[in-house]
Design a protein around this nucleic acid. Structure first.
Length: 590
RNA sequence: GCCCCCGUAGCUCAGUGGAUAGAGCACCGCCCUCCGGAGGCGGAAGCGUAGGUUCGAUUCCUACCGGGGGUACCA
């Protein structure tokens, strides 16, 4: 990472030379870091501390020896030894000036990157199309979207993908639910509950008329749907081949509709749900390059069958007790997993294998964003990757901890079936897209977070996202005002940026200079909170600068005012770039 | 039982071996004849417990305590 920064590359080379000149052993990494305390300079190296043992010398003595032999590159103005043996470096004013000019000239603070040539597939949310999204999904949506943006910014080809589980028993159950609801009949415990079912009923009724809910069905369905009665689409279903039914009295099970009807309506209902999912996500500002339909792309094709045949042919899958097992235990899983049940019906896992195979035909690297409730699935998925002949690291699974939805401190139970969830769309309407996104983006995935509706709504005016956005709006206002007052900032190239020596100016510049390394680290670690926290730090340094350093006014030296103008403009650009990566808006006015 | 994640300020969360552990909110006290006070400055307040590794541990290891999630020929 350090090699990306030209200054550090120069400095590293100079240090290597100094070590050699001082008869000290070489280091493979100068271990540059940003000191927390600005008094410690722009960059620090801990190499003397690390070298103490192998060189059998006191760290300070090593540091002194290095400094003695060090020829500083032009980009570094000073070095000093501090504390137990830190080397603290300060950048020269030229570097500062170049950075500001560069940002303004290019219209971006993000350093251009070499394309990696890597095709990365990022899958996130992928909630079943049998119900609306809840707040927890919002977290994966915001984080997945921002991670995709980060990977894009660091030179990768990226596809955001949503896997639609629009096949299987749940679709039949979903169809049953909709039919019963349309007929005004009572639902059983295993049916989906919630007011959104009525919306689905209205939707289908509007599109196809009431007869869609009858056994015969309308004759003018699109062929693809009409032909669905018994296609591959209903393969991965519970073991009952009989129509789904509910216990009625003591007499046992009495079918309430045919399986074909439930399936047909279920498929149409899932399609309708997909549109609802898409619009909910769009409200959050999340858009996918690819919606992958399990039913259409895996079951209606030969994909599953081909995958199974391939796995069997390569010897990683074998028949046992009438079922087909994938030997995942040979690749770290607890036990082998069933691909095809003894009754001939493929499992959900079989579809997952086919899906993996399909993805690897389209991408070099797969990122999955899953909730903690899916972590039990990781081992077998990792194993499946290897069974398909790919190295395990070609797929990366990020497990995110859960979101606890609270309402005034009290947990809100979220259950799709019970209908007691709070829809993501409602939340976004209540607190706003930027606030919702930002709330999720500023925490690490490993942290289980609380989302208190009342608190977030109440605090919305003091939300950290506004702190950042306000800085952006404030600079915009400043530049507008300058324009209105016919302030002539002159060109960036002519501005004397060496005038920027006030502590608040130096701090701002110093903070701005971190942007590329923060972006690189955030991308590497898939850690959106790094960007968010950085944005907050940067906004803070700007606010301090703004309070202490005036840009406009008769009492401000003209040249200094111009330099500050360009500094502010560059700071705005950095803020806009970081917010852009988070896909949070950067308003000119608030 | 076994597996995964987390215990940091009153609250929500940062800090993937470095110097005096940070931010926002809440609380107390200051700061607008002047570019947006949705701001700035100051104050008070914290690494669950006990060991270990290391020149150095909030960070890595072990145990314990506490919280969350997972452990199907379900999807």
């Amino acid at each position: 990472m350090t090699s990306h920064d030209p200054v550090l590359a120069d400095l590293g080379a100079a240090i290597d030379a100094a070590l050699a000149a001082a008869d000290l052993p070489p280091v493979d990494d100068p271990a540059f870091e940003r000191p927390r305390d600005p008094d410690h300079g722009d960059w620090a190296s801990t190499l003397a501390l690390r070298l103490a043992k192998p060189a059998r010398m006191a760290p300070r003595a090593i540091a002194d020896a290095v400094v003695e032999h060090l020829e500083l590159p032009g980009s570094v103005s000073s070095v000093e030894v501090a504390g137990p043996g830190f080397l603290n470096f300060r950048l020269s004013q030229d570097v500062v000036a170049d950075m500001v000019r560069d940002i303004l000239a290019r219209g971006s603070s993000l350093r251009p990157v070499e394309p990696t040539g890597r095709r990365i597939n990022v899958e996130f949310v992928s909630a079943n199309p049998t119900g609306p999204l809840h707040v927890g999904h919002g977290r994966w949506a915001a984080v997945g979207d921002a991670i995709a943006e980060l990977l894009l910014a660091t030179g990768n080809e990226v596809v955001r993908e949503y896997y639609l589980n629009d096949a299987g028993g749940q679709i039949v159950t979903f169809g049953e639910t909709v039919v019963l609801s349309a007929r005004g009949e009572v639902l059983d415990d295993h049916h989906y509950q919630g007011t959104y079912i009525r919306a689905i009923v209205r939707r289908l009724r509007a599109d196809w008329g009431d007869e869609i809910f009858e056994e015969d069905g309308p004759g003018d369905l699109p062929p693809a749907v009409a032909a669905l009665g018994a296609t591959a689409a209903d393969v991965p279903v519970d073991d009952e081949d009989a129509p789904h039914g509910a216990p009625t009295g003591a007499g046992g099970v009495e079918p309430r509709m045919s399986r074909g009807l439930a399936l047909r309506v279920g498929i149409l209902a899932a399609d309708a749900m997909q549109h609802r999912l898409e619009s909910s996500l769009a409200v959050l500002g999340v858009h996918y390059e690819r919606w992958f339909s399990e039913r259409r792309e895996l079951h209606d094709t030969d994909a599953v069958a081909e995958t199974l045949a391939e796995l069997e042919a390569s010897g990683v899958a074998e028949r046992r007790d009438g079922a087909l097992f994938l030997k995942t235990s040979e690749f770290g899983d607890d036990k082998d997993r069933v691909l095809v049940r003894a009754n001939g019906v493929p499992t959900y896992f079989a579809a997952d294998c086919a899906y993996l195979r399909d993805k690897f035909a389209r991408a070099d690297h797969l990122v999955y964003l899953l909730g903690a409730d899916h972590h039990g699935y990781v081992a077998r998925l990792k194993a499946a990757v290897q069974c398909l002949g790919h190295p395990p690291e070609a797929m990366e699974i990020r497990i995110g901890q859960m979101v606890n939805l609270l309402r005034d401190g009290e947990p809100v139970k979220m259950s799709k079936r019970a209908g007691t969830f709070v829809d993501l769309g409602e939340v976004v309407d209540e607190v706003g897209a930027d606030v919702t996104r930002y709330h999720f983006l500023r925490s690490g995935l490993d942290t289980a977070i609380d989302f208190d509706l009342d608190r977030v709504a109440e605090q919305s005016m003091d939300n950290p996202v506004y702190y950042v956005q306000y800085a952006h709006a404030r600079i915009s206002s400043l530049l507008r005002t300058a324009d209105e007052r016919s302030f002539d900032p002159g060109s960036t190239a002519d501005a004397d940026l060496s005038l920027l020596v006030h502590p608040a100016e130096v701090e701002l510049v110093r903070e701005m200079g971190k942007v590329n390394e923060v972006v690189a680290a955030a991308a590497d670690l898939r850690a959106t909170q790094r960007l968010a926290r950085y944005a907050e730090d940067l906004a803070g340094t700007f606010h301090r600068f703004y309070t202490e350093c005036r840009v406009l006014g008769d009492d401000v030296d003209v040249e200094l005012g111009r330099a500050r103008y360009h500094l502010a403009a560059a700071a705005r650009q950095v803020l806009a770039d970081v917010l852009g990566l988070l896909r949070v808006s950067a308003p000119e006015r608030m």
